[in-house]
């Protein structure tokens, strides 16, 4: 009787383990096939569809705060678009795809004097973004408060 119980228990354990494996496996399979290795949802769109590299259009819907922050930031006003710093999510771009661009390589392309100055003062930083927010470094004070874009937004 005890043996039978033990056998039954073992069966249940095995079944649960098997189910867990199948469940876990399917999740793994889904994530690995539905989302590419770079773990950016946009990567799968890049393989098909026109203007797939136009990150902003989708991010305006999926991550509206980030998209709007960028639009209002200096980078947004100057049209420094997503791919300039981040590359293409499927890794086919001319620069490496990175969610956190390397200051030494990416930022230096335009801000070499500033990066060099900071490096001299404090050593090379891993992230310029810690202090100078890439997306929300807005145009300071109210210089543009009376400009056309603000007027339009208020209306």
């Amino acid at each position: 009787m005890e043996d039978q119980n033990k056998c039954c228990k073992n069966k249940w354990v095995l079944l649960v383990v098997a189910l867990l494996i199948i469940f876990g496996g399917s999740i793994l399979f889904y994530t690995q096939t539905a989302v590419s290795g770079t773990k950016c949802e946009a990567a799968k769109h890049l393989k098909s569809g026109e203007e797939a590299g136009d990150c902003y259009t989708c991010h305006l819907k999926t991550t509206p705060k980030i998209a709007q922050d960028w639009f209002e930031s200096k980078h947004g006003v100057m049209l420094v678009k997503c791919f300039v710093c981040h590359g293409l999510p499927d890794g086919t771009g001319s620069i490496e795809y990175s969610a956190n661009p390397d200051p030494n390589y990416i930022c230096r392309r335009c801000h070499d004097p500033a990066v060099t100055m900071m490096e001299k003062k404090f050593g090379m930083r891993a992230e310029c973004n810690d202090c100078h927010k890439y997306h929300s470094n807005s145009v300071h004070h109210d210089a543009y408060s009376t400009t056309e874009s603000k007027k339009k937004m208020d209306q």
Partner: peptide, 23 residues
């Protein structure tokens, strides 16, 4: 890679086309 020349009028700044000129 290509970066802006800090000694020229642009003071190191490039636009998106200039920053991606190498390929």
């Amino acid at each position: 890679t290509v970066k802006g020349d800090p000694n020229n009028h642009n003071q190191g700044i490039l636009c998106l086309k200039g920053a991606l000129l190498a390929p």
